[in-house]
Design a protein around this nucleic acid. Sequence first.
DNA 1: CGGTTCTCCTGGCAGC
DNA 2: TGCTGCCAGGAGAACC
Length: 281
Amino acid sequence: MPELPEVETVRQGLIPHLEGAEIARVEVRRPDLRWPMPPDLVQVLTGARVTALRRRSKYLLADLDGRGSLLMHLGMSGRLLVEDLSLAEFHRDPAILPQHDHVVLETGAGTRITFNDARRFGMVDLVREGEIHPLLAHIGPEPLEDGFDAAVLARAFAGRRAPVKQVLLDQRIVAGLGNIYVNEALFRAGIDPRRAAGRIGPARIAALTGHIRDVLTDAIAAGGSSLRDHRQATGELGYFQHRFQVYDREGAPCPRPGCDGIVRRIVQSGRSSFYCPRCQR
DNA sequence: CGGTTCTCCTGGCAGC
DNA sequence: TGCTGCCAGGAGAACC
């Protein structure tokens, strides 16, 4: 499901419920997601205080005072549901099946936070105090922070013969991009997703850098994209999906003013790419 | 090392 | 309505 904007949206929605809260109760209902959860997960979390809720790429990290961090990835279909236990009734979307509630946390303030993931591509793990988690060790720069600029991207692209689409999906190059936002950023930059990354000139790389930042910023402001699964932590839908210019728009006219191209869908390394053959070169 | 393909799992939807 | 096949936002592992 979730790319950087969706994970960031979930993080912002969870902050009021988690930051500063004590985890009073923990229940693990199904420990076998993409990887098995650590056996001492319940023990470490119970009684821990969350000092900060951070995001790195598509991972969420809840820092636990003196006990390392809780690390979560939503995979394709993961969600974090928030319920106020003081309310007698909580309306839960019936499409979110309770058999996929894998971890349930209750805070001292009476909030229940449920990790639900139908496809179980997500993960929940612990980062031990002082440890660098292997899944975080090789992730590239955050696109919305200092450290991501045209020079960095140019260096990463240099000599690469793989299609730029594929290179941008590599989390070691830049953090947090997934299929939707790579398609949208390449459209904004006017770059053909099939083009070899090493054959893009410096000016176009510089423009691409800006478009990556812009599309992510726009999407966060819109609460992310809700296709099938994504909800904000509040349960609200994101609405950036209404602003897709090419993603999932096969056959639609190119949205660029004056261009009479038709959005095309191709498959690159097993994933759909959408682009305008007239204005993406 | 770089590049490509496969795989995990479940659910929704188009098409017949 | 019911069945089948295809597709899906991720990303590590295994292959050449």
